[in-house]
Design a protein around this nucleic acid. Structure first.
Lengths: 195, 195
DNA sequence: CATTTAGTTCAAAATATACTGAACATTAAA
DNA sequence: TTTAATGTTCAGTATATTTTGAACTAAATG
């Protein structure tokens, strides 16, 4: 035991583990459920959700653990999964034994590619199905069309990513301006809600 | 018991339940595993896989059951799921009490839309995360960019589907010609394999 | 070298999901 | 009205997945 912990559990704990608002805690759970419907685990969603809203440059193992209230083993495995799929990256600081974790700011192209992996698998399977058929019929026509479409659109998506890179700056400016204008509305809404 | 079943179990059973080649049986299992990685059940993949390769206009409940070797309850539930997500449709014939099932030849647009559902969910979640942050940083910039990109590309994909509709006929012709040329190669390959 | 920190590993428990099989519903035919 | 055909439903079981928690490693600190 060190002298700090004797001086009271919440004295400087609050600095290392800043309390999360109910909204944020709720978001973490929602993120968990969403990741579940995407075929990942609830815990990966919780951890990723925490990392993107925690307002820290990077969070420590125990900060994550505290925020999502899970066991060390669970956090350890979950972080590995998230790093494996490149959703999270680890960083470290000199003179600090801890590892810190933060969301990877994956490029749009990478995001789209991982999405396309499943599509490719599906499309390949349909093509194989067609090759196994012993007659040509409506189904084999459909199988051909669908797998051709996916092949075609795979190429087209790559073009779109390039196009996005060229237009994104102006596009994002528009969006941010729209947001500023909405800000007044939000303040007005809050006043209404609090009345 | 009717007279038919007394005359021997495999007499005309073979007509109603034509034996599937090993390749097809294997495909059914592969399809099951693939659907599993897509977040659906193995059984939905088996049943859908069977329906697209069975070379029947439509398969009866018991033909499906026989092909995938599952219980009636399982087939019943699985077919409902597949119909729910519009992968399979039921048809019936006058004077026949059975229901027959066949793969829905869903339009390309519909296929893409259902794929986009998950993306939308993910994108909305990122936007919400950004609104919960109490500071602007690299992460909030990234959150904005990603959710904007998905919004933008959603619109662009709709254009691509339209484009596909206009070019698909000529595109498919090309593909089919390429296939015919490959056919000679496949025959040659088979000879090599059988030697 | 003993202790603390920071995490990893893995067997077992908890939980979630899918599947079976038997009882049931419904319609048609005998 | 009885029997048969065609499924459906659902409780229980089987299976798979996630999470815990305790024992462990490895490195730094006193």
């Amino acid at each position: 035991m060190n002298s700090k912990s004797k001086s009271g559990p919440s004295s400087d704990n609050a600095e290392k583990f800043p309390a999360l608002s109910n909204e944020k805690l709720q978001y973490i759970e929602e993120s968990g459920l969403m990741f579940e419907t995407l075929g990942m685990t609830r815990m990966t969603g919780r951890v990723f959700g925490y990392l993107i809203i925690c307002d820290l440059d990077a969070a420590s193992f125990d900060q994550i653990r505290e925020a999502v209230r899970a066991s060390k083993g669970s956090i350890s495995g979950t972080l590995k999964q998230l790093m494996q799929i490149d959703f999270v990256e680890a960083i470290s600081y000199p003179g600090d034994r801890k590892t810190y974790y933060r969301p990877t700011k994956v490029s749009i192209g990478t995001l789209l590619n991982s999405r396309n992996y499943q599509t490719k698998m599906f499309s390949d399977s349909l093509q194989k199905a067609r090759s196994l058929k012993s007659r040509e019929d409506d189904v084999s026509d459909w199988l051909l069309e669908v797998s051709c479409f996916y092949e075609w659109i795979g190429k087209r998506l790559a073009d779109l990513v390039e196009e996005w890179e060229t237009i994104k700056v102006s596009h994002l400016k528009k969006k941010q301006n729209a947001e500023k204008n909405n800000h007044h509305i939000n303040i007005y809404r809050n006043k209404l809600n609090n009345s």
